[in-house]
């Protein structure tokens, strides 16, 4: 699924002077200013900051879910600014995986079918049996081998997030974006889910971009980027 021809020499994820301006109540407000950094393949980055500091906005720009007002993002060597909405969707489909705070599982599908969903979207001619096998493997890997046919409504929060992790890793993404992955969970369950996330990240050598306000979780990442009022105030770790 990964494109080996792509040149990652500048880094798996590169932000170049990113800024975001929104219009609210007749006024333009800059919610992000001039963010630049480079993240090597296989590295892990935690974006931290207070509520409303612009963490999730930055994540949405990095993942191509939204467009910046200034600057550009290079994701797996591709400049997102030059792509239209469908082009960015293609890049996401090829390289990225997601984990959300609110899990975002489709309520009408079973755990297994939720994991199969992205596989089927981009599976091409791969047989159903193979896709199913792959999804089953990942569900077993996150410890839900016995709950595959359950729908999200019948799963606990921690279980739902584990399904989301299986779904995210099943496509073999080069980079994983996680938005407050433990934000909706109690601390014990959150800890378990975070352990699983880092473990899978290590195993698959995926690049990880994590938004969190949990300093302990952030400390487990190789690099940390702190945002205050939309500005990058601190970079800890390797080269920014």
């Amino acid at each position: 699924m990964n494109d080996t021809r792509t040149d990652f020499s500048e880094g798996m994820l590169v932000a170049k002077g990113l800024g975001k301006r929104v219009d609210a109540a007749g006024q333009s407000i800059d919610i992000l200013h001039d963010i630049s950094f480079s993240l090597a393949a296989g590295a892990s980055l935690a974006i931290v900051g207070a509520s409303g500091s612009g963490k999730s906005t930055l994540l949405s720009l990095l993942a191509g879910l939204d467009q910046p007002s200034q600057g550009d993002v290079l994701l797996a060597g591709q400049a997102l600014g030059a792509l239209d909405e469908d082009g960015r969707a293609r890049v996401r489909g090829q390289y990225a995986g997601f984990v959300f705070q609110s899990f975002q599982l489709l309520p009408e599908l079973s755990a297994l079918e939720n994991v199969m969903l992205p596989l089927e979207l981009f599976g091409g001619k791969t047989s159903q049996a193979q896709l199913r096998e792959k999804a089953q493997h990942w569900l077993q890997r996150v410890g839900l081998g016995s709950r595959m046919q359950h729908t999200p409504r019948t799963l606990s929060g921690g279980e739902q997030q584990r399904v989301a992790l299986a779904r995210a890793f099943a496509t073999g993404p080069r980079i994983l974006f996680a938005d407050e992955p433990t934000g909706s969970l109690d601390s014990h369950t959150g800890q378990l889910v975070a352990d699983l996330l880092f473990e899978l990240n290590r195993e698959t050598e995926t690049t990880l971009v994590l938004v969190t306000h949990d300093e302990t979780l952030a400390a487990r990442c190789g690099q940390r980027l702190r945002i205050d009022a939309g500005r990058m105030t601190q970079w800890t770790g390797a080269t920014a």
Binding site: E85, D86, G93, F98, L117
Partner: peptide
């Protein structure tokens, strides 16, 4: 929104 985030095109 989820399908689009996962990379499905508008079409």
């Amino acid at each position: 929104a989820l399908l689009v985030a996962l990379g499905a095109s508008r079409r």
